[in-house]
Write a protein that binds this DNA or RNA. Structure first.
Lengths: 156, 156
DNA sequence: ATTGAATTGTTATAAAATCACACGGGGGAC
DNA sequence: GTCCCCCGTGTGATTTTATAACAATTCAAT
């Protein structure tokens, strides 16, 4: 299919870009890490560590939890993926490289997870924290609801 | 101590208030539920389900996980407590009754969890979601950082 | 080639959450 | 009042998620 072909292209591009970024920063973009990022890129849904582990097993990698968790830790800590606390699951980062405090919109109907535009939200959050002298280090912002497409579908 | 006496008073008041609210709404504020809310009110930290379970055991209640989880589900779903996703743990609600989409500030130094002022944050979040036609149903907003008191303490 | 650090593999275990089913008490229908 | 049913509780078992600890391997720099 043309659609999936296009998508494959996007994935390739993202993987290559990640590879370059790792090279620039002296990080090792190993086969396991590459494979996990590829899996995350294939869907715009959040994937659990054990689902990733299954895929790794099928691909001939180690099949014990630490294998998946370590790769995920690497990807998350270097900005290639995010953890969705609400779902105990992971998504590929939509804007790798750009430093950002992300917010996620989780569609409870189709399970798609998208990164929202957060500058105003973060500003408001910083302001609220500043009121009490709280120093922000990390933010978790996750919205559950129904995405545009699913609303339309429901309305029918 | 005078301090803790005062605090006990606050807890009593919160429990009585919860009791009244349940009566008004035809909900049963049972001993287990009361005890769990009491435990949450005793600390302004997030408490894990298994810590609660230990306390329930000591108090002579059932000691299997569902006992704690069911009481917590009740308290959360009726607005007497909140779940902190980041910590897999629970806190008493600071503003029970008032319908609100809460935001939490989690101090990584002293572990205190406080509810932040969120009206501006929620407005910004709604706006960001509206941009893409996303209908917000639930929000998770959790900030990790260092609270005012711990910053002062660190500075010494 | 040699060494040291990072990565991976594996076993085992911990932590968090849910399922399924039995029991009992409280409140409404009559 | 009596009956019955629903809700809440108790319990055992299991599932899901995550980490600890250590051995084996790979890589890069020397």
């Amino acid at each position: 299919m043309f659609g999936s072909h296009e998508h494959n292209h996007c994935i390739e591009q993202a993987l290559t870009s990640a590879e370059e970024k790792c090279a620039e920063n002296g990080l090792r973009f190993t086969p396991v890490r590459r494979k996990v990022l590829e899996l995350l890129l294939e869907e715009h849904k959040a994937i659990g560590a054990y689902a990733i582990l299954d895929a790794l097993r099928e691909a001939g990698f180690g099949s014990q939890p630490p294998v998946a968790y370590r790769a995920l830790d690497f990807l998350v800590s270097h900005g290639f993926a995010h953890r969705i606390e609400r779902l105990n699951a992971f998504v590929a980062c939509a804007h790798p490289g750009e430093f950002h405090a992300p917010a996620f919109m989780i569609c409870t109907s189709c399970n798609l997870v998208t990164e929202a535009n957060t500058s105003a939200v973060n500003q408001a959050l910083e302001a609220a924290a500043a009121e009490t002298g709280f120093k922000v280090e990390q933010t978790v912002i996750e919205i559950e609801g129904v995405c545009h497409d699913c609303r339309d579908a429901d309305a029918q």
